[in-house]
């Protein structure tokens, strides 16, 4: 598909060069080039985003089951059901997601800052070290944490045998384990955009702040932080959206009391095979995320974001 798109784009520009006399035609050809070049992405979006999205939305308003079949129609009761039954998990997802993203930011920013400003010649080594755990499968990594955090595992087991912590102490299946897992798994996705944004800051501008009586603290607050805002913004979106929809951390590190909406959706699909319910929950999640992102972009100024990015 994408091959054909490119070929057509090429043909468009070749024709434009061949016929200088047909001015008008040429202009149209030229104007079309960007769209033709964009064709593969449009096709991709249509095929892998819009079609599944539409089928999900249709499914969420359907009744039936996989054996009997579905009748599609305005069965919006599924949405009310979904909210009625699972609003706690929905809220929890946003709460965990927001908290985990903020903690990730708090850890990722100093790391990215340090690498960008003080990494010297070894910047790429440090970035590689941050990326290193991510070459291992997501699930394996999380299971490793399950081992580490196990109530009688080598960490807490040892501490308990030394009497350093109470025998009843545990962390697995609490919200802290889930949030911790989310933070851990999201870290690299926050460090990278932050690093890119901070690295891009002109050191001469930082120097100018010092020249203009800004001590290190206000240099950071007035210059470095605002100039790294695109990274903070981009990373927040990336990490927050994945965290809110996550189900692996809650499943492996959490317990029934820490179920997130992702777990409910997964159960609806694979355990209960209640596809309309799963689809309705997914639609609600998507809608809420879009509202959240919209409000977030409004609050933090899209216009500024675009400006720096340029």
């Amino acid at each position: 598909m994408s091959g054909r798109g490119k070929a057509r784009a090429g043909a468009g520009s070749a024709r434009a060069e061949r016929a200088p006399a047909r001015r008008r035609d040429r202009r149209i050809g030229k104007a079309a080039v960007p769209y033709l070049l964009g064709l593969p992405s449009w096709v991709y979006l249509l095929l892998f985003f819009l079609v599944p999205l539409a089928s999900m939305l249709a499914l969420s308003a359907a009744v039936g089951d996989p054996i009997v079949g579905y009748s599609y129609g305005g069965h919006f009761a599924e949405f009310l059901d979904a909210i009625g039954q699972y609003h706690r998990q929905l809220l929890r997802s946003f709460y965990y997601g927001a908290l985990a993203t903020l903690v990730t930011l708090a850890i990722a920013y100093p790391a990215a800052y340090w690498i960008a400003f003080h990494g010297g010649r070894h910047k790429s080594t440090y970035l590689f070290l941050i990326m290193l755990p991510f070459f291992v499968s997501f699930v394996i990594r999380t299971v490793a944490w399950q081992f580490i955090l196990a109530d009688q595992g080598f960490l807490f087991g040892q501490l308990k045998s030394w009497g350093l912590i109470s025998d009843r102490f545990y962390i697995l299946s609490t919200q802290w384990a889930v949030i911790g897992g989310l933070v851990y798994n999201g870290l690299a996705y926050y460090v990278l955009p932050l690093y890119v944004a901070i690295e891009k800051i002109d050191r001469r501008v930082v120097r100018a702040a010092g020249d203009l009586y800004a001590d290190p603290a206000s240099t950071f607050l007035r210059v470095i932080l605002p100039l790294s805002a695109p990274g903070v913004f981009a990373g927040f979106l990336l990490v927050f959206v994945t965290d809110v929809g996550d189900f692996v951390n809650a499943q492996i590190l959490g317990g029934p009391g820490t179920y997130m909406v992702g777990n409910v959706i997964q159960d609806s699909f694979f355990v209960n095979q209640d596809y309309p319910m799963a689809a309705a929950l997914s639609s609600i999640l998507m809608f809420l995320l879009m509202v959240a992102i919209f409000l977030y972009a409004r609050a933090f100024g899209r216009e500024r974001i675009q400006e720096y990015a340029a």
Binding site: D202, R204, V205, A208, L212, A214, P226, A229
Partner: peptide, 30 residues
């Protein structure tokens, strides 16, 4: 930042996120 000296840099090094007024007011605010 403790010296009573200011610099005009060759590259100007203006703050890209601030408008002209805020650029000029920067030192006085600090």
């Amino acid at each position: 930042y403790r010296r009573d000296v200011n610099t005009v840099f060759q590259s100007y090094a203006l703050f890209p996120h601030l408008d002209v007024y805020e650029n000029v007011a920067f030192g006085l605010k600090r």
